[in-house]
Amino acid sequence: MLSISEFSQMCHLSPQALRFYHAEGLLVPAEVDDRTGHRSYAFDQVERAMLITLLRDTGMSVKLVRRALDEPDQAVALLDRHSDEVSRQRRAQADAIAAARAVFEVQPEPRLRHVPAMTVVARLVPGTPLGRDAHEWDRAEEIIAAAAAELVTTVRQAGVACLGEPWRTPALETPEQDRRVLDGAGPFWIVKVAVADTPGTLPPLPAGLIVQTAEAHDELSIFMPGRNTMAKYCTVILRLLDAVPPDGDRFVDLARLRQEVRPDGVLSSAPVERRPGAPAQDHER
């Protein structure tokens, strides 16, 4: 029999690791002294220790390692699935590193720009969750992105040319939409795309599509690298609000916030409007 220190040296596993594997049922000592608690190992347990080390070095969880050892005929399939998950995590980490680098390099700040008048085709997006946690938020993002892509396809199939990429905006454009959002019933979002035609020249469009005329206006825009998250969304709102003095004659209309999701990040924009009663003034663009 081998003491825990001897077995530790032989297998290149620390005594702490051996105690942990004992507690987890992965590598149970051949004998445990009832009086002292000292663990002893048999020489033929070296192979199991080697297999545990091989699997743990891949980053497998204790649960998966136990399953691979208990079901050796499934070990290769488990390793394949683990490899796929590791690759997914590495891609996600690479994307996160790129996004973090971009945020610190770019230092996103709002910029004022003028938006000309345009004709817009819109559609409500039903079925999005509220985004109360990361899973709900990501699910909502998927639904909205799919709805935006479908809108563009539908508009083009109707023979209408789209101008630029689609965007999404909160469904707060009518009293009925306001009520349903406040009640938590939804829809919470609208997807839109600018089109080349004017309302009077548009061909018939499928039911559910809304044709709007957006007036020319000034807006503040900020580009946030990386994928859209609740924290980034809130950060964008704070930076847009901070860009306009709270006691000035203008305000940022966040109810009309729009987001254009791009491959490398999200462009968020909100109109800058004159407060009711404020004197009209010319300003530079």
Score class of each variant (00 low, 15 high):
G277Q: 04
E47I: 06
L54N: 11
P199T: 00
P187S: 01
D183S: 03
G208L: 03
R113S: 11
P245C: 05
R274D: 11
A185C: 01
D282I: 12
A17C: 08
G184Q: 05
A49R: 00
L209T: 09
D95C: 04
A149L: 15
P126W: 00
L172R: 14
E71Q: 09
K192C: 11
P15T: 10
L79C: 11
A158V: 10
F7D: 01
V28Q: 04
F104Y: 07
P166K: 03
T213Q: 06
R19L: 14
G186D: 08
E47R: 13
R180M: 00
L124N: 11
E173Q: 07
L79H: 07
T229W: 02
V152A: 06
A23C: 09
H12A: 04
G25H: 05
R88D: 03
P199I: 02
V252Q: 01
L209V: 10
S87Q: 13
A77F: 00
P126G: 06
L205Y: 12
L69D: 08
A68N: 02
S61R: 08
V211A: 05
L220Q: 05
G200P: 13
P129T: 13
A134P: 02
P204E: 09
R39Y: 05
A216M: 05
S87E: 13
Q107N: 10
I222L: 10
T119F: 01
I4F: 12
L112R: 13
R132M: 08
S5R: 10
P116F: 02
P129I: 13
A194Q: 06
D95Q: 11
T229L: 10
F20N: 14
V46K: 13
V62K: 00
D282T: 14
T153R: 14
I210N: 05
D57L: 10
R48G: 10
E260R: 15
N228Q: 11
R179W: 15
A278H: 03
G226N: 12
L112C: 06
S14T: 15
R179L: 14
H82V: 02
D242N: 08
D197T: 01
P245G: 11
T201F: 01
R123A: 10
V155P: 12
L182I: 05
A145N: 12
E150C: 09
F7V: 03
V106S: 03
I144W: 08
H38A: 00
L238T: 08
A214I: 00
E105G: 12
P29L: 14
R239G: 04
D218V: 09
L124Q: 09
V152I: 13
A255D: 15
R250W: 06
R256K: 09
I210M: 10
V181P: 06
C162V: 15
P245T: 06
V272Q: 07
V160P: 07
Q74M: 09
F251V: 07
A148T: 03
A68C: 12
T58C: 00
M10N: 07
Q107G: 05
V28H: 01
G277F: 14
E71S: 09
